[in-house]
Design a binder for these strands. Structure first.
Length: 218
DNA sequence: GCGACAG
DNA sequence: ATCTTGTCGC
């Protein structure tokens, strides 16, 4: 149908991409997960001439990797802050399709609602797939001055235009925080809890760490 | 108008 | 993201 064609359209100019974000942002929903998630898939990619995306599905209870996949696609959009999904989402979606085990939640390396137009890559991918998603970024796009306490688990809300759009979360003591925000079909508290539980030892949550390793460089 | 700016 | 070895600190 026509709506599906719109959602999957990445053949746009930066100006058109911004317009599309404004049109799709209202469709993103923040709501509780239907049930406690058993699996979370982390996505990451390495880029050169083409983009190599990797997806790793992790069991939230044991932290074991239960499935993984990679996909390679040519890069067709430049890196523009605020428009990351138009560059990375095609490869991420291909990696998702290649998975045998479909995850309960998607963890993207970037922002969700903590975005100037409330439409970071986690919102975009989650909306396209209709699957709960969250953004766990290594640096902020908005909310730069938000600093949480130094102990693991401490957080500080990222407020933008009067709204709490995410949190800066300390996943490791005295180490730079991870910026968490809801993508689609999940709440911020749920996203924050998941990221923390999936970061038992390192700053970067396990799903993302493993996907980063798998995407590797060539 | 001048900076800032996920990966 | 990518270019790149050793090194300081918990």
């Amino acid at each position: 149908m026509a709506s599906d064609d719109n959602l999957r359209n990445f053949d746009l100019s930066p100006t058109e991409a911004v317009a599309l974000q404004k049109r799709l942002a209202p469709l993103v929903e923040q709501r509780p997960l239907p049930a406690p998630p058993r699996t979370v898939a982390g996505f990451d990619l390495s880029t050169r001439d083409s983009a190599r995306a990797a997806a790793v599905v992790v069991d939230t209870g044991t932290l074991e990797t239960v499935d993984e996949a990679v996909a390679e696609l040519p890069l067709r959009f430049p890196y523009v802050p605020g428009l990351l999904s138009f560059r990375e989402a095609p490869a991420v979606l291909a990696a998702y399709e290649a998975l045998s085990v479909k995850p309960d939640v998607l963890m993207l390396d970037g922002q969700g609602l903590a975005h100037p137009r409330r439409f970071g890559i986690a919102c975009h991918v989650g909306l396209i797939l209709g699957v709960p998603s969250l953004g766990a970024a290594k640096s902020p796009l908005i909310g730069k001055g938000t600093v949480p306490g130094l102990e693991k688990g401490e957080l500080a809300e990222i407020v933008h235009k009067g709204e709490v759009v995410g949190v800066a979360l300390r996943t490791r003591p005295r180490t730079k925080p991870i910026y968490v925000s809801a993508g689609h079909l999940i709440t911020l508290p749920e996203a924050t809890d998941l990221v923390l539980r999936l970061s038992p030892r390192y700053r970067i949550p396990e799903p993302t760490r493993r996907a980063h390793q798998l995407a590797g460089r060539r």
